[in-house]
Nucleic acid binder design. Structure first.
Lengths: 348, 348
DNA sequence: CTGAAAGCGCTTACAG
DNA sequence: CTGAAAGCGCTTACAG
């Protein structure tokens, strides 16, 4: 019943919040000074002893600035929104982990959601910004003509497109997929393969386009035929059809690198139907790592992309914009890693 | 340069925020009345015409209450935190979807994160609560002695444990897993199987315990042997070992129901090694649905749990607590669904 | 029933 | 350099 915040009410449920004024009193300074010291205000010349006293007091009392109060005075809320096309996709799980981690280091919070219905998502994001809940958004679910693209630009919301770039936006944070193609080709070449084909992702996804462009370039540089590329939809059937037409035209192909895991599954099904053994007749590798690849039979060899680095870079890029800096697109050059399982071996 | 909010500055970047006072002016009423009408204050007796005028004004101006301002006066922030053990698990993806959807309907926002390091998570949650960012938490990653359990109770934070219950907490929202066992048994029985075994999840996870208890009960009721149960760890090897010892003791078993997908993979591997054909010699079904089950060979038949309903129920339960109602544990009785693929058939 | 005023917890021009 | 005061945008006792 007692209303004073001192003398604690053990059983009152929510512990009384400790406010800035409490810290100031404890440190025997004004609220203003406490605020400035705690926020490390530029051009502050308080005595070291005083600063210390304030920090100690804050520490001792367990002071946490109330986000709402701060959000009311300052523009920033410290919250970033991350939009993912499919939560169950291991690629994006990596992106999320990287983003969450880096955000925490930089004292931001990231709020992940699945972008299932683009039109709804655009509305939701707009609402979150209008109600002052979020400060920037990272879009990993961009597609040509996604309604969000316009919303973001029009309303001047700090944002970044992750993995899937939007042409001309100047706000893209993407991977250098060419490195994955090169890694796969190098790996297969070292195994002894010389006839290596690529099942590329059909359609507009820029990430898969960069992958196939990289394949062509690396094949040429390695002295291989750079024309063994067939497009297939990002599905099991897509992979199966592409592989079938590939092997019909080029029966000497001994290894296939696919853009997506499901395509690799299709390739293996096709091989089975044509009585080809994987890996001894045909090695299969994909640019799409997921722990579940180990459960396929044969277990699938993959190239793992630096997804966590991608998430971290996205966070850095939005924060840069929020802090008022300019933001240019960036391409990450981390090295991908081949995860060898059972679907690849030396050609016979 | 113009500072007045009227006369819009098309190119000023962020459009001026429309505030409650703007709505009040537009509707020619006081701020107080506008606030009360918009919030549907109980015991309000304003004329219908006035109410309408206020709503119209808000609509016309595109008014959105500023979350920070509201959070400063009221206790509630309208944000719920959802903690998931593994983002790539399709089960939890369903939970997330259900939660997000229901929260939106109830005008709340859910903020999902992966609980990778329990100790860190507990700290983070505490910080989020202290800074007034979140209002309640839904924990799908509970484990015995998870530090969060104590934090939540001690600090009186509205919360709920999802799928994995915490004994004696009185805050559990869980599924009736027994229904899944029954569904699997019924399905297999109708196919003609009479010798049906269960590879249960070893260890303390309460959800898998409920599954095996349900298996035993349903088997008995269906007039089947209720003793064909072996525990295995939740891994491929766990499934393989359990199945091997099962078939050694009971060679007449024609169908196996596993708790986890990875166990089913292990069972199929074991079958392959023992020259048993799946499904003609041995049918396999699991309680763990994921679209990827279609890519296994043979494609795996599963029982799909009502994960979205679980997420929605969790949201309802925390909101109930936040609104001050009491909250009791609840068990959901939605019917699971068998998703038939290639790994099951009639016994020969 | 409704309006004027105070207050939520911060930050930051504005004066010393 | 630093303190007193105003103000961010809302909600809600407190008086009419």
């Amino acid at each position: 019943m007692a209303q004073n915040s001192n003398g604690a009410g053990e059983r009152t449920g929510a512990p009384a919040r400790v406010r800035l004024v409490d810290v100031a009193k404890e440190a025997e300074v004004s609220k203003s000074l406490a605020s400035r010291v705690l926020n490390d205000h530029p051009g502050l010349r308080a005595r070291a002893e005083v600063r210390q006293r304030i920090h100690d007091a804050a520490e001792r009392l367990g002071y946490r600035p109330h986000a709402a109060a701060r959000g009311l005075t300052r523009a920033d809320t410290g919250v970033l929104s991350l939009l993912i096309p499919d939560l169950t996709n291991a690629f994006f799980a990596g992106v999320i982990r990287g983003a969450v981690q880096r955000a925490m280091e930089r004292d931001f919070t990231v709020f992940t959601s699945e972008d299932l219905v683009p039109r709804e998502t655009a509305k939701t994001v707009e609402r979150l910004v209008q109600t002052g809940r979020i400060n920037g958004v990272m879009v990993a679910s961009a597609q040509p003509r996604h309604p969000l693209v316009a919303t973001l630009r029009t309303r001047g919301i700090p944002h970044v497109f992750v993995n899937r770039g939007v042409r001309g936006s100047g706000h893209n944070v993407i991977l250098n997929e060419a490195l994955a193609s090169r890694a796969a080709l190098t790996y297969l070449t070292e195994l002894g393969h010389t006839r290596i084909a690529h099942v590329a992702g059909a359609g507009r996804l820029d990430s898969t386009r960069r992958l196939s462009a990289g394949f062509r370039k690396a094949a040429k540089e390695l002295g291989l035929d750079d024309d063994l590329i067939v497009e297939g939809s990002l599905s099991e059937d897509g992979g199966a059809h592409a592989a079938a037409s590939l092997l019909e035209q080029h029966p000497d192909v001994t290894a296939i690198f696919t853009a997506a895991l499901v395509q690799a599954v299709g390739v293996m099904r096709m091989a089975y139907q044509h009585d080809l053994d994987v890996p001894s007749d045909l090695s299969v590798i994909t640019a799409d790592e997921t722990p579940l690849a180990a459960f396929l039979s044969p277990a699938l060899t993959t190239v793992q992309m630096p997804t966590e680095g991608l998430g971290a870079a996205a966070v850095d890029a939005v924060i840069e914009q929020i802090l008022g800096g300019t933001s240019a697109s960036r391409v990450l050059d981390y090295a991908p890693k081949v995860i060898e399982r059972e679907s690849t071996t030396a050609p016979r």
